[in-house]
């Protein structure tokens, strides 16, 4: 994979000034004369860089600053402080040559025309990005087949399901073959099967076109499935930047012993093996330290009537909940 840096963010800050008002009629009258404001630090001193061809998951709870960062990377918002460089351009200059190399898909803001079939919006994008007929026809055929939307292309967008709409949004965003694809919650509200298809599609696009992808998501499955690297932010600060494997090795101190007994076992007795996460008659889940999980498993096997034993890693979601969501 090439090592060229395509996104470079240095000490990025975005502060918003928001009016403050307590509840009640008199407070409303007071705010009419004397309005109070407070500063919200949506993004506060975030630095990172992304190389060409990477898929990076941008994680964090609601209000962490993920979408705000994405908006600064695409030129929608101006930073309060700090610098952003994407493909050698400052996004806030809104240069056409830059805009033709990126694309943004937002889960809750769409570019399709509500009353018309998605194909009409695709043709508009063809004009907007100046895509040649040959490139358009090739990309259109490839993308519609990959996402399986051919049967709904003549249907007005308002009649499409959420999943079908998101697939069409992805096609609209990729027709001009952008070098970088920014995705903000692309699988929000989608059913499990569609989520899976979208994830597979993103991986394929990344592999075949070398498209750099940066996505924010609430679904850990999204991030685990498509990206090897995650950047985690909360309260506007970067908390972690690295591979998922390293994250797990650093923070996933435990492993889970998922055990099935031949007869019921009291959960209090299992405490000598590790921390009992759940226990119900003949089944139990016990968290044990990663470094001596083998010993603990052996202990379990020798002292209890074990019928079946599985050893599982902590989920990324659990690690994040435990270490980063406070």
């Amino acid at each position: 994979m090439a090592e060229k840096t395509v996104i470079s963010v240095n000490h990025l800050q975005k502060y918003f000034t928001v009016p403050e008002k307590t509840a009640g009629f008199s407070a409303s009258l007071r705010s009419l004369v004397h309005r109070k404001y407070k500063t919200v630090k949506a993004v506060d001193d975030v630095t990172f860089s992304i190389r060409e061809g990477e898929i990076v998951g941008f994680l964090g709870p609601n209000g962490a600053g993920k979408t705000t960062t994405l908006k600064m990377l695409t030129g929608i918002l101006y930073p309060t402080n700090g610098t952003v460089d994407v493909l050698g351009h400052i996004p806030q200059k809104h240069e056409k040559v830059f805009q033709k190399q990126i694309s943004l898909v937002m889960g809750q803001k769409n570019q399709l025309w509500w009353d018309l079939p998605a194909t009409d919006a695709f043709l508009l994008n063809k004009e907007i990005y100046g895509i040649s007929d040959a490139t358009y026809n090739k990309a259109f055929a490839e993308l519609t087949e990959l996402l399986g939307v051919a049967p709904v292309l003549a249907t007005p967008v308002r009649k499409l399901s959420l999943g079908q709409r998101m697939k069409c949004e992805l096609i609209a965003a990729l027709l001009h073959e952008p070098k970088i694809l920014f995705l903000d919650e692309p699988t929000i509200g989608l059913d499990v099967a569609t989520q899976k298809r979208v994830r597979e599609f993103l991986i394929k696009i990344n592999r075949e076109r070398g498209t750099t992808i940066m996505l924010t998501s609430h679904y850990m499955e999204d991030v685990e499935a498509v990206s090897s690297r995650v950047i985690m932010i909360n309260h506007g600060h970067k908390l972690y930047d690295g591979t998922i494997a390293k994250l797990m090795a650093t923070y996933a101190k435990d492993k889970y012993l998922m055990v099935e007994f031949s007869k019921p076992v009291q959960s209090t007795r299992l405490a000598e093996v590790g921390e009992v996460v759940s226990s119900r008659e003949t089944r139990a889940t016990i968290a044990v330290p990663r470094k001596d999980h083998a010993k603990r498993a052996a202990l379990l096997l020798t002292r209890f009537p074990v019928e079946n034993l599985d050893i599982k890693e902590m989920k990324l979601e659990d690690v994040i909940l435990e270490h980063f969501s406070k």
Binding site: I76, Q99, M106, K109, Y129
Partner: peptide
């Protein structure tokens, strides 16, 4: 309503 977001990133 922020509807300008998608248009602002396009050469449009």
């Amino acid at each position: 309503m922020g509807e300008m977001n998608i248009t602002l990133v396009k050469p449009y």
